[in-house]
């Protein structure tokens, strides 16, 4: 069998495997462990420079209460949801329509339009920083959650279209032809035939896009300032005092910020992995 299962290999390989795996895991998770540990330290530990040693006291409850009572973290968290949920819905709605159009219709510039969507993904978005900021000012949405929703939808739709179009291409085309012969209008074919069959793709893509948008830091800092609009990824730095470092609070905030996508991942793990391969196959 290929690959040979580990428990059928020589004992040296087995031992090496059993040692190397935990070490690799530990290395991989070290930054996360450090953040988690720091989030329960006291401020005394931070000022005395005890970043890596054993905490002198465990302030789990104090720290996690402090970030919500002494700072606008709750507002930032709410902003994150207010940005992410509409952005996911918008990108998915648009891309299932574009994917349907590019997947089903035969027209001369089909492939060219499809490549435009795909090519958009290859532009490093940093170079768009200034134009996008100017555009958002002209549109009157600068420094509001609408700016983030709008531009996240715009940037995610390219990737989502690629994904949706490829998925729709895997559906049996006979289904659509059968409906056409029966005189069903195209919009109804989309709604009653294609959309119900796209459920796995919709689930997978929602999880992916949710994670992408939630974890965004770049646009959050470029397009918004302050607790009225910024999502939590950008808001965490406000936990650091103006004069004193409060890394234990920043860490606690980071853990809170990381929870929703992690939860989402574990809840929808099956779809997430399916989603990563869906786009790749075919």
């Amino acid at each position: 069998m290929f690959p040979t299962p580990i428990d059928k290999t020589s004992s040296a390989t087995r031992v090496a495997y059993k040692v190397a795996l935990p070490v690799a895991l530990l290395l991989w998770l070290l930054p996360l462990l450090a953040v988690a540990l720091t989030s329960v330290r006291s401020s005394a530990d931070i000022t005395s420079g005890n970043y890596w040693g054993w905490p002198t006291s465990f302030n789990l409850v104090e720290n996690y209460t402090a970030i919500f009572t002494n700072s606008p973290l709750a507002a930032y968290l709410l902003n994150s949801f207010k940005v992410t949920i509409p952005a996911v819905l918008g990108a998915i709605a648009l891309s299932s329509l574009t994917g349907f159009a590019l997947g089903i219709y035969k027209f001369r510039s089909n492939l060219f339009v499809f490549f435009l969507f795909v090519a958009g993904n290859f532009i490093p978005f940093q170079i768009l920083m200034v134009p996008v900021r100017d555009l958002s000012i002209q549109l009157g949405v600068y420094n509001s959650i609408y700016a983030l929703i709008l531009f996240h939808i715009a940037f995610q739709t390219g990737f989502c279209t690629l994904f949706m179009r490829n998925f729709i291409r895997t559906l049996p085309f006979d289904l659509i032809e059968a409906a056409r012969i029966e005189g069903v209008s195209d919009l109804r074919i989309f709604w009653y035939v294609v959309l119900p069959l796209m459920r796995p793709a919709l689930a997978a893509l929602s999880v992916l896009v949710f994670t992408f948008v939630w974890n965004d830091y770049f646009w959050a800092t470029v397009l918004t300032q302050g607790a009225h609009a910024q999502p939590i990824t950008a808001g965490i730095k406000s936990l650091n005092g103006e004069w004193i470092a409060a890394w234990h609070l920043v860490s606690a905030g980071s853990v809170v910020a990381a929870l929703p996508p992690v939860l989402m991942f574990f809840l929808m793990q099956k779809h997430f992995i399916a989603g990563l391969t869906l786009g790749a196959v075919k």
Partner: peptide
């Protein structure tokens, strides 16, 4: 196709 009055079995 819809206007032709045909049914098709695939």
């Amino acid at each position: 196709p819809a206007a032709r009055g045909v049914s098709m079995v695939f």
